[in-house]
């Protein structure tokens, strides 16, 4: 398995259960050694660098600390949500397992609360504990206007203003992207976790940008 190249590994991924494949990759260092790709001016200033609080009680800058140079997975939720949030959270928990040790190293999952008034870091910590949310997956809250800005910038909106205002009908999609490579896409949060994990890996660093490649 040590000599498996990335290409054959990907081919294996296409046919083998994702779980087993990923388990073999834990020791692979995948952080970019350099950043040869230049961000376009429009992209560089796109993401708001607002302050957010994590469920671990830390204050972080959205762009500088959470997005920059990372592969990220982003969704919106709120702790009192009675609808789609639970199945999506269950899926993301599976995704986290499937991605193995990479979550927290160069892949990060962010769930942003749409109910920041209620979802204080303490409430989110409790939520995380109940759901076994592990390292590398942050629940985020912040000032309501900052959360709203992120929601719009990240495209979790609906063109129907009535639907858009209704938290209980919030977008159930999961964004995945590689910020440095300017690669972004999204999939339904209710997709199969194996499928979501596979999609996230399309964002992986090109060979030339991996350490030791």
């Amino acid at each position: 398995m040590k000599t498996m190249t990335r290409k054959t590994a990907l081919a294996a991924l296409a046919v083998a259960p994702v779980f087993g494949y990923l388990a073999t990759r834990k020791t692979t260092e995948t952080k970019p050694a350099t950043r040869p790709i230049r961000r376009e001016p429009f992209r560089a200033g796109y993401f708001p660098n607002v302050a957010m609080q994590t469920h671990e009680g830390k204050t972080v800058r959205f762009y500088d600390n959470l997005l920059k140079d990372k592969i990220v997975v982003i969704n919106f939720f709120y702790s009192r949500c009675g609808g789609l949030c639970s199945p999506v959270a269950r899926n993301l928990a599976q995704v986290q397992k499937l991605l193995g040790g990479r979550v927290g190293r160069d892949i990060f999952i962010y769930s942003i609360s749409l109910d920041p008034g209620h979802d204080t870091p303490a409430v989110l910590r409790e939520y995380a504990r109940n759901r076994g949310i592990g390292p590398g997956w942050l629940l985020l809250t912040g000032r309501p206007e900052d959360v709203e800005l992120l929601r719009r910038k990240l495209g979790f909106t609906d063109p129907d203003p009535v639907v858009d205002r209704d938290k209980s009908q919030h977008a159930g999609i999961v964004r995945y992207g590689n910020e440095a490579l300017q690669r972004w896409a999204a999939c339904p949060g209710e997709a199969k976790p194996e499928w979501i994990a596979k999609s996230i890996l399309w964002m992986d660093w090109p060979k030339a940008m991996k350490k030791g490649a």
Binding site: G172, I173, K192
Partner: peptide, 17 residues
């Protein structure tokens, strides 16, 4: 469409299915 997710017959589609 269900909460921003496009569906066909209510189902979420992927290539492996």
């Amino acid at each position: 469409r269900r909460q921003g997710q496009w569906t066909i017959n209510g189902r979420i589609i992927d290539c492996d299915t």
